[in-house]
């Protein structure tokens, strides 16, 4: 079973993340960039499926040259090869453009049975790209997976959202996006790190992937960030003075916030 995992390099959630002043796109220079943790889980799931069913795991990313580091991390975990779509014209692409571009790149990988992705990147927080990629490719989309099983030509998923858990299945080929609960990603072993150096990474420009430059990039995006402001600092919140009824009042507060 051949699996493609969509991965993204994002600013480390521990560092300060900001948008550039000039065009409100992500300021990649101001933060440490890492493979998004949810993508590590997607890679982990792909490797587990590969251990059970064989086949090849290909990681795919779209991003600047530095995104190679994210691919190497996935390769050091055990993925077999990588494809990197990198072109200055992609800068500032919106979710729809990104999904179309990724669909083209997935099309360059032969015999794909399953596309895996994280359900939402920690930087954009759109949570839309996996479903859009499935739409473009005409694949069933099984999103928010907390468990994935493949049986023959069927993929079964436990889909967990705020509303509850749904048990869904689809015929392969399909796209599955995974949530935080799916697994604990492995650490790259030293041998994995050394082996990653020798694994093939194909770098594609727009033309190589058959993407029209007029369809991507900030100038052609359907959505525009008009304005951005930093999050306001946390306000003081509500103080509960304990006059013997502190516990009850805290419970009331939490109940009012629908937290209990």
């Amino acid at each position: 079973m051949n699996i493609v995992v969509l991965v993204k390099q994002v600013p480390d959630t521990n560092s300060e993340r900001r948008l550039t002043d000039s065009d409100h796109t992500l300021d990649r220079a101001s933060a440490d960039v890492v493979l998004d943790e949810i993508n590590e889980r997607a890679v982990e799931e792909a490797l587990r499926l590969q251990e059970a069913h064989g086949g090849e795991v290909t990681v795919v990313t779209m991003g600047p040259d530095s995104a190679t580091d994210a691919l190497r991390k996935a390769l050091s975990m055990g993925a077999d090869k990588a494809v990197h779509l990198s072109d200055a014209a992609l800068h500032g692409s919106d979710a729809v453009q990104t999904a179309r571009a990724l669909a083209k790149v997935i099309g360059t990988v032969e015999g794909v049975d399953l596309v895996l992705a994280g359900n939402e990147a920690t930087d954009g927080r759109m949570g839309a790209v996996p479903a859009m990629v499935a739409e473009v490719l005409g694949l069933p989309a099984l999103t928010h997976a907390r468990k994935v099983e493949v049986d023959g030509s069927t993929v079964r998923v436990e889909r967990e959202t705020d509303e509850g858990v749904a048990f869904v299945e689809a015929a392969l080929p399909a796209l599955v996006s995974v949530g935080e609960k799916i697994n604990e990603p492995r650490y790259p072993s030293f041998k994995g790190i050394m082996a990653a150096k020798k694994k093939p990474v194909t770098t594609l420009g727009l033309a190589d992937a058959g993407i029209d430059a007029a369809e991507v990039g900030l100038a052609n995006a359907a959505t525009t960030v008009v304005e951005a402001a930093p999050k306001p600092p946390r306000s003081g919140g509500q103080k509960v003075e304990d006059a013997g009824d502190g516990g009850v009042r805290i419970a009331e507060f939490l109940a009012a916030q629908k937290l209990i």
């Binding site: 190497r72 650490y187 030293f190 790190i193 150096k197």
Partner: peptide, 13 residues
């Protein structure tokens, strides 16, 4: 790259 990757993997562990 390999040494940096090793550092980061061991640090995560």
């Amino acid at each position: 790259d390999e040494h940096r990757a090793l550092r980061s993997a061991v640090a995560a562990l």
